[in-house]
Design a protein around this nucleic acid. Structure first.
Length: 606
RNA sequence: GGGCAUGUAGCACAACUUGGACAGUGCACCUGGCUUCGGACCAGGUGGUUGCGGGUUCAAAUCCCGUCAUGCCCGCCA
């Protein structure tokens, strides 16, 4: 519902009529409009306060002068002023009808904001090396990327979800040096992680760094034994990692293997392009002698003195491809079929040409620790003509588990740091949710519902990871995540299930039969106001790259719905029944749509 | 030393980009409500010098300057 637009228009016209002499920015007016706290008004503008100074008038006089000129326009019913504010009330009958009609009409697309206009955006996540399992930090990355993909799709962008596989890094050479061998029965990524930790310790103790470097060089020779072997290990590892991804419902469109990028002509073209733009230096002395250096700030090595390119160099080349600054064609083959039936493709030299890459805009979900690198990358790309704003870095903070809270594997095999895998997190959560369900069914509160515990476990984790501003550090605590009341994913799911339950008993309602005049100015109207604001919320989440905006909104809706059915009975609502059923229908839809954006599946029963 | 980020009630968060009405929400704590559409609930209450100090403004959690605390980054690793 465009109530905000309607009100803005009224104010703009009012201001123009009242003060025709002065120039007023319409954006200022739009920014002055808010939905104030209960008690003042339904919608309000502070524009009089903002321009009073320029007019050399008292704000309250400015407000009254504007208000005099304003003609209320449906669904805005009344205008009054208060201390410089221009306040309006909304007609709940008309507004309720419009919101309900829109939600029912649009269904699962209600709340979408058409700001993307089919523009292509590539979202890259989760950047896990193919030598270990997903840890909880990688999980936060993946969940952010997954949710962001959904939000951008919802905003009518054409989203390409991409997974970059670094199968040519030093960590892979380390594995080759130690001779990986075959795993017994363990999950392959876990097995590799453990092997990797052991082998790196061996290397450290025996000063074998040079041998590892030699392997690294051989790995890069196309078709060499090392080259083939390392690709096999990487693919097997990614396969295992995707079991974890699917557990959490995380999916991709394409996997780009670094080895394929190196084989292509992409890197050479990229270096030539940088050179042409005067971005490269080749110092013959000093600390960077015999290297190729990126000429930004104090400089950054792109090609080492032994001729091997660095990570940043490869990343720059890759991003030129992502942005379509270089047209390099890659071949792809089917990698894996995902839970929703879609196929994730992988770059490969024995596949077919497909159209990936070449987006107007790219988003990299990468830890805030890499901000410096991402800035360098951005600067280099701008220097050769990338549009400003075309590359965005969603930097996210670390995630830690509160001490002693996971009974699973501690992950000391990853080095000294204690860490946990995303798999362990899931199984532990699942176990705890089962216990909670068991306790509450023993207490006679409810019967356990088949399959619900798993959904609740996933929802609890996702909501806990996504409810916080990405930039901030997250400390995962069981007591909070598994507190299934307000402020949790389970609470939102519960409200959805309640709405379903009510609709089961009432059987829905035909739109034509609804008597909207039965909408009161109570909890029903408060709920409708929230529901009507969905597209603004979604837009904000999209523009600011913040899924937590959606989580916040979901909690508000859920809590408003709870207040609604507590105070206004639906089934026994008499004349008001139909209108209330319609509100329940709208609520169910909006909760479903918003949960989807967080990657959480709602269920009818739990 | 330089750069980036964070600092809001006992705890966890929101509002900061775009300055506006008493700084919102949940947990915890206190009080009340289940023969009433599923109590994983609701109503009410206690709790805040928005790290600190200046400045700009009619108006500052929000903008500017300074300062303190915490975290991260500053490699021919990725």
């Amino acid at each position: 519902m465009k109530i905000r637009e309607v009100f803005c228009k009224i104010i703009i016209e009012g201001v123009k009529e009242a003060f025709s002499g002065i120039e007023i920015n319409e954006i200022d007016i739009e920014r002055s409009v808010v939905f104030p706290a209960v008690g003042h008004a339904d919608i309000s503008s502070s524009i009089a306060l903002r321009i009073a100074g320029r007019l050399r008038m008292k704000p309250s006089d400015v407000a009254s002068k504007i208000a005099e000129k304003i003609k209320a326009k449906s669904p805005i019913s009344g205008i009054e002023t208060s201390g410089g504010y221009i306040n309006a009330s909304i007609d709940e009958t008309i507004y309720g009808r419009e919101v309900v009609a829109e939600v029912v009409g649009k269904g699962s697309s209600y709340g979408s904001a058409e700001i993307g206009k089919s523009e292509k955006v590539i979202i890259e996540y989760p950047s896990v090396n193919p030598n270990k399992p997903w840890l909880i930090g990688h999980l936060r990355n993946a969940l952010l990327g997954d949710s962001l993909s959904k939000i951008f799709s919802f905003c009518s962008y054409s989203v390409e979800r991409e997974d970059y596989i670094d199968d040519m890094g030093l960590q892979m050479a380390v594995l080759l040096y130690g001779n990986v061998g075959k795993p017994p029965e363990e999950k392959y990524d876990l097995f590799l992680g453990e092997r990797y930790a052991k082998i790196s310790k061996e290397i450290e103790n025996s000063n074998a760094e040079e041998k590892v470097n030699a392997i690294l060089k051989k790995m890069e020779e196309n078709g060499s034994r090392e080259n083939l072997e390392v690709r096999k290990i990487a693919e097997d590892c990614v396969m295992a990692q995707y079991q974890t991804a699917f557990l959490y419902g995380v999916q991709h469109d394409v996997l780009m293997f670094e080895s394929d990028i190196l084989k292509s002509g992409l890197f050479k073209k990229a270096m030539a392009m940088l050179d042409k733009n005067g971005m490269l230096k080749r110092p013959s002395e000093g600390k960077y002698s015999d290297c190729v250096v990126l000429d930004i700030g104090e400089g950054k090595v792109l090609v080492r003195s032994n001729g091997v390119p660095t990570y940043l160099a490869k990343d720059i080349a890759f991003h030129m491809w992502k942005l379509g600054l270089i047209n390099e064609k890659f071949k792809y083959r089917k990698f894996i079929t995902q839970p929703d039936g879609s196929i994730a493709y992988a770059s490969s030299d024995n596949g077919e040409y497909m159209k990936f890459g070449g987006a107007k805009r790219i988003i990299n979900v990468i830890g805030s620790a890499q901000s410096l690198n991402q800035n360098m990358l951005g600067e280099a790309l701008m220097a050769i003509g990338a549009e400003s704003g075309s590359i965005m870095h969603l930097a996210y903070g670390e995630i830690e588990l509160k001490e002693g809270s996971l009974s699973g594997r501690k992950g000391e095999w990853l080095g000294e740091e204690v860490n946990y895998t995303a798999d362990d997190l899931f199984y532990e959560t699942r176990k705890r949710v089962d216990k909670l369900v068991e306790q509450s069914s023993k207490a006679g509160k409810r019967a356990g519902v088949e399959g619900a515990a798993e959904k609740v476990a996933i929802a609890a984790i996702k909501f806990e990871f996504l409810r916080i501003d990405p930039l901030k550090k997250v400390t995962f605590e069981w007591e909070r995540a598994l507190d299934l009341n307000a402020s949790s994913g389970a609470y939102c799911m519960y409200m959805y299930a309640r709405a379903s339950g009510i609709l089961d008993r009432t059987g829905g309602v035909e739109l034509e039969k609804i008597d909207y005049s039965k909408i009161t100015r109570g909890a029903d109207f408060e709920l409708l106001k929230l529901i009507g604001n969905a597209d603004e919320i979604v837009k904000k989440a999209c523009i600011e790259l913040k899924p937590n905006v959606i989580a916040e909104y979901l909690l508000e809706i859920s809590s408003a719905f709870s207040r609604f059915y507590e105070t206004l009975p639906v089934i026994t609502g008499g004349d008001s029944k139909n209108a209330r059923v319609a509100i329940v229908m709208a609520t169910k839809q909006i909760i479903n749509n918003m949960l989807n954006l967080l990657g959480i599946e709602a269920s009818e029963r739990m």
